[in-house]
């Protein structure tokens, strides 16, 4: 049941790295006839020491903000060379995708290149030391949105990048989580069957940046989904066609409590408002996306 490993051992990722999991799963789904493009980020840094690359597929890292454009150029060249069987996939973190790379990504989506762009979302700039990104969950403490006597962490909502991708009228957009590998791999595979640009947002917890035990990467990822914080869905040609139902909706506290970045919310009563807001966010997701079917959760966090 194991296939040829395309993501070689010996990379320098942290133990329990969610980004590494996402990448391995992605490569299992794409197979070896693929060219992968990555922006700058953790994944790039820990995989690509000169002479010690762990990529067993052709891989290109340009800059932080241009993976979408590089992938476009690669795809255009393949088209001219008649090498259209070879797939082009980009994978980058939330910093390189939600923030600095959104221009190039939007350009790629607008032009409709045959590329699947995958954003592994670990909710902050982990490569440079856990600075907040526009993907950071509200009220998380990061090194540039630290919790303190006058701060409850990051104050702004998480950018809904998948919805922005969807607004480009591309044929396939999906969200996923490393906690559900089969679902994610199926989505990668499925994306490759569409003509045009595809975007997949995969949630990939980071034990170091979020502050949890390295064994819990998958567990934390699962909790994000089960609380309704990270809705898992799929859209084809602009319509949401599938959502992942949550069997038993869990209160957001279960997710937050295991992570150091939310510790300040529980340190005193001062965090109650924020906890309630986060629960409300989950409730809204559940309701809006229909994640719980008939069941709806109202957990009182006070």
């Amino acid at each position: 049941m194991t296939q040829k490993e395309l993501f070689a051992s010996g990379h320098r990722g942290c133990p329990g790295c969610g980004a590494a999991m996402a990448t391995r799963m992605m490569l299992r789904a794409t197979g070896d006839d693929v060219i992968v493009v990555s922006p700058t980020g953790c994944l790039e840094t820990f995989t690509s020491m000169y002479g010690e690359s762990c990529w067993e597929v052709p891989w290109f890292h340009g800059l932080f903000e241009n993976a979408g454009a590089i992938a476009s150029g690669v795809e255009a060249a393949l088209k001219m060379q008649g090498r259209t069987d070879t797939k082009v996939v980009a994978i980058g973190g939330d910093g390189g995708t939600f923030d600095i790379g959104i221009g190039a990504l939007s350009g790629m989506l607008e032009r409709g290149h045959n590329v699947t762009y995958i954003c592994y979302d670990n909710e902050a700039y982990m490569n440079t030391g856990v600075q907040r990104s526009s993907a950071t969950t509200p009220y998380a403490s990061t090194t540039t949105s630290p919790a303190g006597s006058h701060s409850m962490g990051k104050t702004r909502p998480k950018k809904n990048l998948a919805a922005i991708a969807l607004a480009h009228d591309v044929p396939y957009v999906a969200t996923a989580s490393i906690a559900y590998p089969q679902d994610f791999m199926n989505k990668v595979k499925k994306s490759l069957t569409f003509q045009g640009s595809r975007f997949i947002h995969v949630h990939a917890p980071c034990p170091i940046g979020w502050g949890f035990d390295t064994a819990l990467t998958v567990e934390v990822g699962r909790l994000a989904v089960e609380t309704g914080l990270m809705p898992i869905w799929e859209a084809e040609y602009g319509e949401i066609t599938k959502v992942r139902k949550i069997r038993e909706v869990k209160p957001i506290e279960e997710y937050l409590k295991v992570q150091r970045r939310f510790r300040h919310l529980f340190a005193s009563d001062a965090g109650k408002k924020e906890l309630a807001a986060l629960q409300e966010l989950c409730n809204k997701n559940i309701e809006k996306m229909g994640l719980a079917g008939e069941r709806k959760v109202t957990t009182d966090v006070s």
């Binding site: 070689a8 320098r12 002479g51 690359s53």
Partner: peptide
């Protein structure tokens, strides 16, 4: 560089 060279780096 060629891919797969990371095997030299035993972690």
């Amino acid at each position: 560089c060629a891919g797969g060279g990371s095997y030299v780096n035993k972690t």
